[in-house]
Design a protein around this nucleic acid. Structure first.
Lengths: 193, 193
DNA sequence: CCTTTCATACCGAGCGATCGGTAGAAATTT
DNA sequence: AAATTTCTACCGATCGCTCGGTATGAAAGG
């Protein structure tokens, strides 16, 4: 593992635990076994470290999202697969998820522009999927943006409570999310009431 | 409005926009039209301001949650009412919601204990409601904790996207949340497939 | 009625610590 | 020898917070 990657790894852990503003460059350098100046040899600024963490993680997720979206399965199945993927992906990268959710405000103006645009593209992709469902006349008449945000709410919020080592494994949780989103919490016999 | 309340109001706006660590006491004092020392006349520390904002907001919400929970309506209706209340409540207090979601980590150890305990009580209340639904045999066999967190995910996440002045009003959004949570996004005719 | 007392509400100045970041050189690798 | 990596030493700025006060007005005593 390169020194650069060590810095990213350490910073990811610290940013998630204490926040960007609550983490000093001295602490990052210390835990990466470097002097402060040594650390700044690899990154031009503290903010650039944050940016690289966030952009890298988003791009990773988007790539897989598109793979699922472009695969040759029905839209309902796609949504189920996407639920599963995100729960598993985020469960395996809790620190990155925490940073993604909490530290957008710490990015510089330019980086934040890119960040927000990537978020927008994410939401667009989900909206498109819901629009596909609507085209096949499977969907209730609900605004697809709202549906996309409901999805992201459910999934992103796992950062605050979910323990993948607990009773409910990531795959199981992904299945539950898909089920609740598609068909709700009520039993079949009660749905139409 | 007392000077104390002005400080709380200013701090709420700043903490939500820049984060606790990203907001200086100088800035709070300046915007509250006070010297730094003058501000510390009303609060023993910066952290105490944050604590008061968070605790106050949580207690307010919990009070109303219990009113609905203890009211004399069926559990399905209760859940619908709770969805509506929270969306409206949070839509009217976006800064407080942002702080609640983002700044738990900035509390002192003692305050954080209380904060986490209040969160636990919130989740317990929602779990109880889902357990009530299960007792009436209305619910799919899904862990009630997971359902509570799905609810909070949907609702809390509004902090990141929802504009109450937009096309979809708070009451409408609350209704959508209730519908999706209870019955899912699929049309009735497609549910059992 | 007038004065003394006393608590509340503030403020200017500045404390020690820490912040993000850098200059310049030594050490190491190629 | 050249390039890369890493260091020590330090910068100016800002951090949260506190000190020793002052202004004001209400209560208490004469």
């Amino acid at each position: 593992m390169s020194k650069r990657d060590v810095i990213l790894k350490v910073a990811t852990r610290l940013f998630a635990a204490k926040g960007f503003d609550g983490t000093s460059v001295r602490r990052i350098a210390e835990e990466a076994d470097l002097s402060v100046a040594g650390m700044f040899h690899y990154f031009p600024s503290k903010e650039e470290i944050l940016n690289e963490i966030m952009i890298g993680f988003m791009d990773e997720g988007y790539k897989r999202l598109m793979e699922i979206y472009n695969s040759d399965i029905g839209p309902v199945k796609k949504l189920e697969e996407i639920c599963k993927f995100y729960v598993e992906h985020y469960a395996g990268h809790k620190d990155q998820l925490t940073i993604l959710v909490s530290e957008g405000k710490s990015l510089s103006l330019e980086h934040r522009k890119v960040f927000i645009d990537k978020q927008r593209v994410y939401v667009e992709a989900l909206k498109r999927l819901f629009d596909d469902l609507a085209k096949e006349n499977l969907l209730k008449p609900i605004d697809s943006s709202v549906l996309a945000f409901i999805f992201f709410g459910m999934v992103h919020w796992t950062y605050s409570w979910y323990n993948p080592q607990g009773e409910i494994g990531p795959e199981e949780l992904g299945r539950i999310f898909g089920e609740v989103l598609l068909r709700g919490v009520l039993k079949d016999t009660e749905r139409s009431k």
